[in-house]
C-alpha cells in the first residue's frame, strides 16, 4: 500500500510539472503581454524597453526555468500586471473561499447522490426510481444561474430561511453549494445507481444471500463497497470541474471567491495571475485525484496489489 502511495505521489508531482510548463508556454504563445499592457500608440523602442524591464526579451526556456524556480522555491508567480501586487497574494485572498465552496458542493452532491442512487437501484423501475430520475434530469438541465436565482427567491426572499449573499457562516454556504452541486449531482446519482445495479447481478451477491445474510448486510456491505468504486474515482476529477465552474455561482451569490479574478485576468492578459490560477487549480485536481486513488485502493485490494 505504501509503495502504491509513493508511486502515485511521484506521478502527481510529474503531472504538476507538465501542467506548469503547458500553462507557461501556452500563454506565452498566445499573447504578448507587452502589447496588451502598453497603450496602442506605444513606440517600438518603448515596447522593447518594457520587455527588457519585465525580462520578456530573454529566451522562452530561460524564462520558464526562472518561472519554475520562483514558483517552486518561493511560491512566487510574479507581480500582477494589472493590480501591481504579487499574483499569489491576489489568489490566496480569494482561493480559500472558492475551495470551501467546491468542497461543500462535493459533500452535498454525495450526501444526496449516494443514498438516492442506492435506493433507485434497489427499487429499479419503481415510482420512486422514476421520480429520482426525473429530478436528476431536471437538475442537469437547469442553468446554474437560473437555479441560483430561484433558490434565492424561494429560500432567501419568500421563506427567509437562508442568507442570500456573503460568506460569513455555514448557513451562507448552503445555497451556493446546492447551486454549484446540482449540476454534477445527477451524474453521481446515475453512477451510483448503475454501479449498484451492476453489482447486484454479481455472483457474490447471490453467495451472500445464500449464506443467509440479512438484506441490509447484502446491500450495505457486499454490494455497496463494490458499487461505490466508480464514484470514488471520479470525485477527484470533479473537484477540478467544481473549482472551474464556481464562477457563475460565485457571481450569483456574491461569493468572495476567485471566479471573477480568473475571468478578468484572462481578458486582460494578466498572465502571472492566470498562470498562478492554472497551477493552483491543477494542484487541487492532482491532490483530489491522489486522494481518490488512495481511497479506491483502500476499497479494492486488487488496485493496490497490482
Amino acid at each position: 500500500m505504501l509503495a502504491y502511495i509513493i508511486r502515485r505521489m511521484f506521478q502527481a508531482v510529474a503531472i504538476c510539472l507538465v501542467i506548469s510548463a503547458m500553462s507557461f508556454f501556452m500563454l506565452f504563445l498566445n499573447t504578448d503581454p507587452a502589447l496588451m499592457l502598453l497603450p496602442p500608440e506605444a513606440e517600438v523602442a518603448d515596447i522593447a524597453a518594457f520587455k527588457k524591464q519585465m525580462g520578456l526579451d530573454r529566451p522562452v526556456l530561460i524564462q520558464y526555468k526562472d518561472f519554475l524556480g520562483r514558483v517552486v522555491f518561493h511560491g512566487d508567480f510574479g507581480q500582477s500586471f494589472v493590480y501591481k501586487v504579487p499574483a499569489v497574494q491576489l489568489i490566496m485572498e480569494r482561493f480559500p473561499a472558492t475551495l470551501r465552496l467546491a468542497l461543500a458542493a462535493i459533500v452535498f452532491i454525495n450526501l444526496v447522490a449516494i443514498p438516492v442512487g442506492v435506493i433507485s437501484a434497489v427499487k429499479r423501475g419503481s415510482f420512486v426510481d422514476n421520480i429520482f430520475t426525473f429530478f436528476a434530469l431536471m437538475g442537469q438541465a437547469m442553468p446554474l444561474y437560473w437555479l441560483g436565482i430561484m433558490l434565492i427567491i424561494i429560500f432567501g426572499v419568500w421563506l427567509r430561511w437562508l442568507p442570500i449573499s456573503g460568506s460569513d457562516s455555514f448557513a451562507h454556504l448552503i445555497l451556493p453549494a446546492i447551486t454549484l452541486g446540482s449540476w454534477i449531482l445527477p451524474v453521481n446519482m446515475r453512477l451510483v445507481r448503475s454501479g449498484m445495479l451492476d453489482v447486484l447481478n454479481k455472483d457474490y451477491i447471490r453467495t451472500a444471500r445464500a449464506k443467509g445474510l440479512p438484506e441490509w448486510l447484502v446491500l450495505g456491505k457486499h454490494a455497496f463497497k463494490n458499487a461505490i468504486l466508480p464514484l470514488v474515482t471520479v470525485i477527484g476529477m470533479q473537484l477540478g470541474l467544481l473549482l472551474g465552474g464556481a464562477v457563475v455561482t460565485e457571481t450569483v451569490f456574491a461569493w468572495p471567491g476567485m471566479g471573477q479574478l480568473v475571468l478578468d485576468s484572462i481578458h486582460m492578459g494578466d498572465y502571472p495571475v492566470v498562470q498562478a490560477v492554472v497551477v493552483v487549480f491543477a494542484v487541487c485536481v492532482v491532490v483530489g485525484n491522489l486522494v481518490a486513488d488512495i481511497l479506491a485502493a483502500l476499497i479494492d485490494p486488487r488496485i493496490r496489489l497490482n
Partner: peptide, 10 residues
C-alpha cells in the same frame, strides 16, 4: 464459478 462467487473486496 469460484472466481466470481467470492466478493473481491473482502
Amino acid at each position: 464459478e469460484p472466481m466470481t462467487s467470492l466478493n473481491p473486496v473482502y
